[in-house]
Design a protein around this nucleic acid. Structure first.
Lengths: 348, 348
DNA sequence: CGCGCTTGTGTTAGCGCTAACATATTTCAC
DNA sequence: GTGAAATATGTTAGCGCTAACACAAGCGCG
């Protein structure tokens, strides 16, 4: 029990062992008292607790994690944090995680595959007990996810999910959503409905495209390939894609647009307005997500409300269940959505 | 070197020591090779690296942290994550932290003092190397911050800062900002300018109030107490506060409103519209923050752009400098702002 | 009154890593 | 070729905690 420290910088922090020494008990007794384990005399426990308070003891979670081989921390990997969707998801995650006594290491990948790989690696180094991932747009190789799971670290995907590798996925039913909102447009009597689509590499992009086509098919409407333009998930892409649609001759031009999400819709709205067309009279448009800006838009955007908070919360809860082995991985959890009708679709 | 594990659950993960054994070298050599330290034979280093790759070795950062007494992790405490300001700040933090090789544990307090205390405690338990804090609205007792600093954990406050306890603060010049935008209103010729104020317990609330009064004073305008209503930082408070102002008799009623931030302004706008008053003709209004919704509002909101990303980035950079002892704590870092003129003030 | 049982506590060792020191090997000047 | 410096590697111990086992004392019970 050497009193020397190796580095000059002496840690001011008191350890459980130091408290033990002061009280003339063993470190183990202190540990037991502090963690509320049984088999500690009431008197002893009180002595320990009051000493801990007195000396400002903060348990060293790092040492604890090393000894117990668990960190009570989960890693979150999101593609971005700027827009309203992910913060809201994170809020849901935070709440669930907090009440289960876990913590949250947040990494964002800026939609970059390399950064995502990097993030997953370092989160593993930090020995997170599990991972919550929404994939970057360009990810196509899933081997790292599989490897992570094989190493015993459960993953729950949310929103942008990866099916078929045995991990639990939490998302909305993209296909159904998009079909519903497309049918809403069909119900309005539009007959030339365009789709600004997401990248086909991402589950959401694929699912929504499928829903769009399905809705058309159900009403015997032809899919016109020139009316499907890939916009991606961001405003800028929506703008560019819409510009492209507006180049079509007036006869070919769509009278309605189903955008893959709200930000893309905002971009499209900007393009439509620049062409001095009216929404919804000249071109109606709807989005999906319910971005906080949707209500404020010049022509308030009809959209599918995607309950970001609930997605985050259920994903976190599912992950913690799997970490604590109270549930098996590989579940599909669908979060309910609802159509939020405003004006951009042509309703009142 | 017992081969038995205590728990049934055997860790599949390979350790540096296991690699050492396989290669017939010592654990130390492996450690040196992996960490790029000098004094390792080139051949040996390559052997180690390729073995590490081959066996899928992930360094155990927990053990490393324990040995080195540093975690390369910083704790972030924010009051909320839903609105556009904090996500943007976090993005700035994330970028700075990522490029310095640190990581980020995020906690949000929901504006609750107890949750904040709790968060700081557990972050300390996790032995974060430093803390980035934006205080909850209701915090008045600063002893925990001081205690944390005394324990050797640097804190950098951002946005909602705590002065005079020796910690570095990163914020905008609240007083100056609010004075500028108030003077902008005075320049428009409004002579009955109200202020929706933040809570006086928070640096921002105090500073902006001061700026508002200063601007009036500079132009020999009287401060009329009935025109100062506390709204807090959120939409709802803005709405309620504005309702109160609208109860005033037409003679006393303000012709312009300076809101403490954009969300409060949005609440106020809602109240104004419900009273069928026009913005800016009947009542002009300005905010501060530049919320993403500001541009989209019916009468696009004139505001002071508060560079959230830069605030996050400089705060994180400052903290890391202090952690690495390249800078001393107690600095005041002011981030520049700019007036963003739109329509709600009466311009154009 | 000796047996097992419960309760309280201590001891030992190990989680996986790395600093500091110790030792072996090579390099090279003169 | 010899001593000193430079390079490469090993050994020991410790970061702060806790599981597993060991042990001591007090308990009731037939």
């Amino acid at each position: 029990m050497s009193e020397r420290k190796r580095s000059g910088k002496v840690s001011r922090r008191i350890t459980a062992e130091a408290i033990a020494e002061k009280l003339g008990v063993s470190a183990m007794t202190v540990s037991r008292a502090l963690n509320g384990r049984p088999n500690v005399n009431r008197k002893t426990r009180e002595k320990v607790l009051s000493a801990a308070r007195k000396y400002g003891y903060t348990p060293n979670h790092i040492a604890r994690s090393l000894a117990l081989r668990k960190t009570e921390t989960i890693g979150v990997v999101v593609p971005e944090i700027s827009h309203s969707f992910f913060p809201e998801v994170i809020r849901g995650i935070e709440d669930a995680v907090y009440s289960a006594g876990y913590h949250l290491i947040l990494t964002s990948t800026a939609e970059d595959v390399n950064r995502e790989q990097d993030a997953i690696m370092t989160l593993q180094s930090k020995r997170v007990d599990g991972l919550l991932i929404s994939t970057a747009q360009t990810v196509t190789d899933h081997s790292m996810y599989e490897e992570t799971i094989r190493q015993g670290v459960p993953i729950v995907f949310f929103d942008r999910v990866v099916q078929n590798i045995g991990a639990t996925c939490v998302s909305i039913d993209d296909e159904d959503c998009c079909a519903r909102i497309t049918e809403h447009m069909i119900g309005h009597g539009y007959h030339s409905i365009a789709h600004l689509s997401g990248p086909p590499t991402v589950s959401i992009g694929k699912g929504r495209m499928k829903g769009y086509k399905k809705a058309l098919a159900r009403h015997n409407m032809k899919v016109r390939p020139e009316l499907i333009v890939q916009s991606g998930f961001h405003e800028k892409g929506g703008y560019v894609a819409m510009e492209r649609l507006l180049q079509l001759s007036p006869r070919e031009r769509p009278d309605a647009v189903v955008a893959v999400n709200d930000p893309a819709a905002f971009g499209a709205i900007k393009a439509i307005q620049e062409h001095r067309l009216r929404i919804p009279q000249d071109i109606a448009i709807v989005g999906m997500t319910d971005d906080i800006r949707a209500e404020l838009a010049l022509s308030p955007l009809t959209t599918i409300r995607q309950p970001a908070y609930e997605i985050g919360k259920s994903a976190a809860e599912a992950l913690i269940e799997e970490i604590e082995e109270r549930a098996k991985p590989g579940r599909k959890i669908i979060v309910q959505t609802e159509l939020t009708v405003r004006k951009s679709c042509g309703c009142v």
